[in-house]
């Protein structure tokens, strides 16, 4: 009988257990990034930059060269790598505390300079690793360990929308927000990642894919409820879609 491989674990990930909590969408996102790197033949030239937060250990998971950055600084580290190794494929993997709070300057300016890197931004509206504190992306009235009565606008402002914010930066090339709450959206998210890495291999500049993600443990929900909560609450505030595509030359000159 002839056998046919219809599915196998990606070589884009190191074969070992992930450090993420059960039910968290980091695992799906890692798999997608690994698959895209593998399928596009980019593992051999890849340099990933791990950030600080839940994904701090991602240097153990992506099957390519990796460097671990200080909190928020991954886009600056990636800039240093890409400038001296322009033929490498450089990506950062950052959470919302890392990218939207402490690393705001680095992400905005990497986009502003049009650095030819790909940013994978995982937004679950909370600081996961440190135990569920409020992030700039935390929704109004969302309870966290530092907004125990729910986030209030008068104290903490309104949640930051990073894809929309970066869309106003002239130097950014490709920005898309995706979700991985069901197979259909997972497939769409993979396409977005493929596009983002193509932008880089074609030397077209800065690309970022924002993933609406979950945090069952710190949200205090089951994995299934977390996915539903993300669909009902996060996606309405963080609508999915392409926020900028200057590869068509729409406003990038």
């Amino acid at each position: 009988m002839k056998t046919q491989t219809v599915y196998k674990p990606t070589d884009g990930l190191v074969k070992r257990d992930l450090s993420y909590c059960p039910g968290c969408t980091h695992g799906v996102i890692h798999k997608l990034v690994g698959e895209v790197l593998e399928e596009k033949g980019l593992l051999d030239t890849g340099v990933g930059v791990a950030s600080v937060g839940c994904s701090v250990m991602s240097y153990e998971f992506f099957n390519c060269d990796m460097q671990q950055a200080a909190h928020g600084r991954a886009p600056a580290v990636a800039t240093g790598i890409k400038r001296v190794r322009p033929e490498s494929t450089v990506f950062t993997y950052q959470g919302d505390g890392d990218l939207a709070s402490i690393g705001m300057a680095e992400i905005v300016h990497a986009a502003h300079r049009g650095e030819n890197i790909t940013v994978i931004f995982v937004n679950n509206a909370i600081y996961g690793m440190t135990g569920g504190q409020m992030a700039p992306t935390t929704l109004i009235d969302q309870k966290t360990s530092t907004s125990p009565r729910g986030r209030k606008q008068k104290d903490a402002g309104l949640p930051l929308r990073m894809s929309e914010l970066l869309a106003t930066v002239p130097g950014a090339t490709y920005l898309e927000r995706v979700s991985v709450h069901d197979p259909k959206h997972i497939r769409k998210a993979k396409k977005a990642l493929e596009k983002a890495f193509e932008v880089q291999t074609q030397k077209q500049g800065f690309s970022m894919i924002e993933f609406v993600s979950t945090c069952p443990v710190n949200w205090g929900m089951t994995p299934q409820d977390s996915l539903e909560w993300a669909v009902d609450n996060l996606i309405p505030y963080y609508p999915l879609g392409v926020y900028k595509d200057a590869t068509k030359g729409d406003d990038n000159g």
Binding site: D65, Q67, A70, A76, V77, R85, S88, A105
Partner: peptide, 20 residues
């Protein structure tokens, strides 16, 4: 590269030094 801050500059140094 003129970085956006000293903080970014030293982290660019870290990245570039890490890649040899």
């Amino acid at each position: 590269v003129q970085a956006e801050s000293e903080v970014a500059a030293i982290n660019m140094v870290y990245g570039a030094a890490g890649s040899g």
